[in-house]
């Protein structure tokens, strides 16, 4: 807990010491961190390998973008509404996807994400088709609060969301609910025979994960000012999964680090070479082969040794 407070304070002071472009990078890293952490609930704690988490992000991004463009809803409420929407949609998605197990589950989540991609591509009146939604404003907050319209103010909004979501996830995985999730991860048949309706638990964790992933997406579109189909594309789902694995699954902190690492690496590599994806793929393969516990696993093992 002490470390958590220290990191939170450090992040809160970041705008004082960092130049503006670094703040932009950091904000995006935190948003992606929130997304990766939400996926970790499924991947790391329940062994539900979702290959369609971009769906949650895209839903949130489009929904908040649409609300901000077409209604006068204050920004925080639009973001919240988008997050709730993603969670509600997830209940339906999870109901179907949990019919299958293992690899079939992964493929089903991929299919859903692609279905959503197809919808985003064709539903011109709402999603703007291949152009996407552009010029999404950061409207003034409720009660005349305008702080979210500035870059640093928005950073604080993102930071508060991430810290809140982290504390929420941590208490969730520490609760009896989280214990059941780990039971499903280790041995679903056994958990079922102990009298837990594992399917309901899985649907619940997908809904929570999507709501938080949707929150990340909802924060992204006003930050970037646009939402396009790339946010729902399967490649992005794969990238989020990479962040979780490289960071360290089942740790909550790890995926956030993974997201930051991903952002930083992409930023640095793309300055030196056009082929950053090549090195990225190699680094990723290296992690899967030699360090399946991820960055956080390496760090904590070093600390314990």
């Amino acid at each position: 807990m002490r470390i958590f407070v220290c990191v939170a304070l450090l992040l809160a002071m970041a705008p004082l010491g960092l130049p503006l472009f670094a703040m932009t990078l950091l904000t995006e890293a935190l948003i992606l961190g929130l997304l990766a952490m939400s996926l970790d609930l499924m991947v790391g704690y329940t062994r539900l390998i979702s290959f369609g988490h971009a769906a949650a992000y895209g839903l949130g991004a489009y929904a908040s973008g649409y609300l901000l463009l077409h209604t006068s809803l204050p920004l925080p409420f639009a973001v919240l509404a988008a997050s709730v929407l993603a969670g509600v949609v997830a209940i339906g998605v999870a109901w179907v996807c949990t019919l299958a197990k293992g690899v079939s589950f992964s493929m089903l989540t991929l299919a859903f994400a692609q279905l959503l991609y197809a919808v985003a591509f064709k539903w011109t009146s709402v999603t703007g088709a291949s152009d996407g939604l552009a010029g999404i404003p950061r409207t003034a907050g409720p009660f005349g609060v305008t702080v979210f319209q500035t870059k640093n103010g928005y950073y604080y909004l993102v930071l508060v969301c991430l810290l809140g979501a982290y504390l929420f996830c941590r208490s969730l995985v520490g609760s009896p609910f989280g214990a059941v999730l780990r039971g499903i991860r280790e041995n679903e048949a056994k958990t079922l025979s102990l009298g837990y309706n594992t399917r309901l638990y899985k649907i619940a964790v997908v809904a929570v994960s999507f709501a938080l992933g949707g929150l990340a997406g909802a924060l992204y579109s006003p930050f970037a000012g646009f939402a396009n189909t790339e946010l729902v594309f399967w490649l992005f789902s794969g990238q989020v999964l990479i962040m979780v694995i490289v960071g360290g699954q089942g740790t909550l902190i790890g995926p956030i680090l993974g997201a930051a690492f991903f952002m930083l690496l992409e930023h640095v590599l793309s300055q030196y070479t056009e082929s950053w994806a090549l090195f990225f793929g190699l680094i990723f393969i290296g992690f899967v082969m030699f360090a399946p516990q991820g960055i956080w696993g390496l760090l904590t093992r070093r600390a314990r040794a």
Binding site: L241, I242, A277, L278, F280, G281, F284, I285, V288, M289
Partner: peptide, 9 residues
């Protein structure tokens, strides 16, 4: 995941 890495490379 390894084959996803191969896809990128």
């Amino acid at each position: 995941m390894v084959t996803f890495g191969l896809t990128l490379v």
